[in-house]
Design a binder for these strands. Structure first.
Length: 226
DNA sequence: ACTTGATCATTT
DNA sequence: AAATGATCAAGT
């Protein structure tokens, strides 16, 4: 795949957007070939692969580093699998939660808000009956920042979780049913994967790892925009 | 059919 | 171990 763009990192937001938009219509398999990356055979060991191909193509050097993918641009990159109507097939992970730190955070100043301040969504259409992640195709590109209404909704959910649960040592009582646009769901190696937190009496304990996720309906609205 | 809770893969 | 990237699959 030759997109005519120079290697990473992207120097300006315009460069990054132009590069991303040039990928619309391209299959991930082609993209991977152009990058010299192997395309996984079948559907095992593919989790995360789509995001990593897009990262490499767009020049995210250090995946795994904390903070925005394009630090100098303040842009977070997210890929999301969608159907032919651009409706997400999955929720979108935002970040992991530090139960101790978040108890002292306000929405303003929170890591979650920083992550969501400016997001480059790359929608990847999954063909029905696809036999490989290489068959996914870049379907849409959206640079998004929350508008006033979305910001209110995000903040309301964030405060529900922080004030109602984390700050009261009730993290383990959170379920995926809570939150209108933002969810808190498990985000660990497995159910036994824990980290430091507090119990309801304020004593140190271990709590299951959780992360913030955007509901598919919320991302659907973002993708349906311009 | 959809969501929630559980889990997988890679990198530092 | 802990962050990143996510998707799987059982339960509803």
């Amino acid at each position: 795949m030759e997109t005519g763009f120079a290697p990473s990192p992207e120097r300006t937001l315009e460069d990054l957007l132009a590069h991303a938009r040039a990928l619309v219509g391209v299959e991930l398999g082609e993209l991977a070939d152009g990058l010299g990356l192997p395309v996984p055979a079948g559907l095992v060991r593919t989790k995360g692969w789509s995001g990593q191909v897009i990262e490499q193509e767009l020049g995210v050097s250090s995946s795994g580093a904390r903070g925005p993918d394009f630090a100098s641009l303040g842009v977070e990159l997210k890929t999301v699998p969608v159907d032919a109507r651009l409706v997400p097939l999955e929720s979108t992970a935002v970040c992991q939660i530090d139960p101790v730190a978040i108890a002292a955070e306000a929405w303003e100043g929170s890591y979650a808000r920083e992550k969501l301040a400016r997001v480059l969504f790359i929608a990847l259409e999954v063909p029905p009956g696809a036999r490989s992640v290489g068959e996914r195709r870049v379907a849409a590109v959206r640079l998004w920042s929350p508008d006033a209404e979305q910001e209110r909704a995000l903040r309301a959910d964030f405060e529900l979780f922080v004030r109602g649960f984390f700050r009261r040592g009730r993290a383990e009582e959170i379920t995926g049913h809570l939150g209108a646009v933002l969810q808190v769901r498990p985000k660990g190696k497995n159910a036994a994967d824990t980290r430091d937190g507090y119990d309801a009496r304020g004593n140190p304990t271990r709590v299951g790892k959780h992360g913030f996720y955007l509901r598919p309906s919320f991302v659907a609205a973002i993708l349906s925009g311009p």
